[in-house]
Nucleic acid binder design. Structure first.
Lengths: 383, 383
DNA sequence: CTGTTAGCGCCTTCAG
DNA sequence: CTGAAGGCGCTAACAG
């Protein structure tokens, strides 16, 4: 079955230096509207109208055909810059996110791309994490006329949105972030998701439930924590003294925070983790401390991802409608761009968050077992 | 320590419908070159020259200052469409990749972005996995004049590169893929990386070494497999009958392939996995089959990523210069765009691939132990 | 129904 | 050293 596609075993490297200068060197299509018009024997404006399916024109079929043929023959592709210049719109939407390699943003991107395409727009992705970059992006992209609007998925609450953006405050939608001010913003029901997680842990019989929350300056983290507390209150449970840990949304953050929770005099029997990636680290901390999930500790994480099903044990998660968030944000932005009215704040409520049950969930261990396990755990050396 | 940033406990949703139409509705800066020229009392062309630091101009300082001030006061941002139209270059590079949420492409993107910025370009990211999309992207982006060139990181060997792209064959660089034809292409030394992995396993005393390779139509997978065989040959080891598994580069692929390897009559004592993500699945398969890594089986994966350090056990990897690949590809493309000569095929050779040692590596188990473990393993139920 | 004209905002020869 | 003029490729009123 080893059908190797033929390839030099070790391809020649840095060989033969070419220096071909392609015809289309400047990167632009060589044939223009006038070229097409000439070969079709009509006026450029007619070509423009026909090629754009301008409804306000009814050329005779033979002419239309001639034009289409000429365009095809010349490989004509309209120049978007010229078009944007006169139309004053680029049919491009900018999306600025902290990091593309993130299961969360991946789904958001796909949703945004889908909605953009449906509305006739293309997406221009930019990575950057702080609002300083947002300002730069706003200038370069929106003010520079490169895009018609901007989806902003970066930045945190403590940063203030750049003045330029606020002053003009047009053509922007903030995504997955709650922002004060006139700018429309669209988020998920993070509280609801966390409610569901806590409710499940309560249902299993847990009372000593911890929350491995995200950083204090990220509002999704704050809203998830609020949902956690809400869920605990609804179950008439108190949130333990040191049962709320703030940590970065990455493996290292989850690892360290989990270590702190496990070293508590009276550690939790369940933990709701604010992010799948942090949960990977949290699981690692459990392994290192000989704490068995779910026997000693139940774990559930916010946001579902393929990897969750392949951890040890497979990790229960809360699925959130991230694709739909990307879609909704894009639709909202398109409305903004077109001057339609819109709600200043929206939550994506459907499909509903749902629990993905996996093996990391179990009833709490009998009391004495737990104490013993933890005593052992605390003596384990650090990683 | 719970410094919650103030927020409505549950913010009002879908409330007050705005319909403000911002001043900059069309998304473009309102102030133009002529506006700046008027308020500065000079000619537009002078403003243009000063603002671009045209070396062929020495205005008197006072004039220059007046211009700069006027531009700042009006918040002037040049319109890139107009500029591109006349310059015939957009200073934008398109990057087309299968999926952004991939630790591999993440690093490539960051490298490309860095090099692009350094050369005065911005990156336009597009996600799509097949060459059909590449064709569409080439038309829309390159021929449409939206970008000056295209970095192509998608597609596989069995697809043929679209005719348009081949005919024009300008302003494109293929990245992480080996392509026949005139188009420049830049890759990593995948063979070398795999050599290192095999060498380490051999050094530990393994002889029954398997390769969990990627799909046959992806050339990186094929090159890694070639490196595997090369490494085995160098150690005078034979590659076992069924010791080469082809699987998708994802968790599920790794899981299934590993299951097949473990169910072999005489299973391997070590496995080199072609991708970290597949390795996550492979590890899960081991857990499910009660095969202990590294006691029963050593594992090493191609490409390093943060998550590798937080798996159970932490997974040894081969680090590859992916950031540098992105950088190099971008520099190459910039050369192509500028008509400079370039090598048709390049390999990124520095920094060198290196082994990241982690706990998934150990000497092979004593012979009889292994047999027993495997007999047990085969009786385990499927996940 | 089709051609004519006038720009969109900017850069770049040219004169002055 | 600065202003004037033309045009990049396209679309959108206008005429005809």
């Amino acid at each position: 079955m080893e059908e190797e596609t033929e390839l030099p075993e070790r391809a020649p490297v840095d060989g033969n230096s070419y220096s071909f200068r392609s015809a289309a060197r400047s990167g632009q299509s060589t044939s223009t509207l006038v070229a097409v018009a000439r070969t079709a024997g009509v006026d450029p404006s007619t070509v423009s109208r026909v090629l754009r399916d301008d409804p306000a024109v009814r050329v005779r079929p033979s002419t239309r055909e001639r034009i289409i043929e000429a365009a095809a023959a010349l490989g004509y592709v309209p120049n978007v810059n010229a078009r944007s210049l006169v139309l004053r719109r680029t049919m491009t939407i900018g999306l600025i996110i902290p990091s593309a390699s993130n299961v969360v943003y991946d789904q958001i991107i796909k949703g945004a791309e889908s909605a953009a395409r449906a509305a006739g727009y293309v997406l221009l992705l930019t990575e950057s994490s702080d609002f300083g970059a947002v300002e730069a992006a706003y200038r370069e992209l929106v003010l520079g006329g490169r895009v018609d609007g901007l989806l902003i998925g970066s930045g945190n609450l403590n940063d203030s949105l750049p003045d330029v953006v606020f002053e003009r405050s047009g053509n922007c939608v903030v995504l997955n972030r709650l922002i004060r001010g006139p700018m429309p913003s669209i988020i998920e029901d993070d509280e609801r998701g966390m409610n569901i997680a806590v409710a499940r842990l309560v249902e299993l019989g847990h009372t000593r439930i911890a929350c491995l929350a995200g950083p204090a300056d990220v509002d999704t983290a704050t809203r998830r924590l609020a949902g956690f507390k809400e869920g605990m209150a609804e179950a008439s449970l108190t949130v333990g003294q040191r049962y709320v840990e703030r940590a970065a949304f990455n493996e290292g953050g989850g690892y360290e925070a989990m270590r702190r929770l496990l070293s508590l005099p009276s550690p939790p029997t369940a933990v709701a983790v604010s992010s799948v990636i942090a949960a990977v680290g949290a699981l690692a901390a459990c392994h290192d401390a000989n704490v068995v999930v779910p026997d000693d500790l139940s774990m559930i994480a916010f946001h579902d991802a393929a990897i969750a099903g392949y951890l040890s044990p497979p990790l229960a998660t809360i699925w959130m409608p991230l694709f739909e968030l990307g879609e909704a944000a894009t639709k909202l932005l398109v409305d903004v761009i077109n001057g339609k009215s819109f709600a200043s704040l929206q939550r994506v409520q459907s499909p509903e968050p749902r629990l993905i049950e996996r093996k990391s969930l179990a009833p709490p261990p009998p009391e004495h077992n737990t104490a013993t396990a933890r005593a052992t755990a605390r003596r384990e050396p650090a990683r």
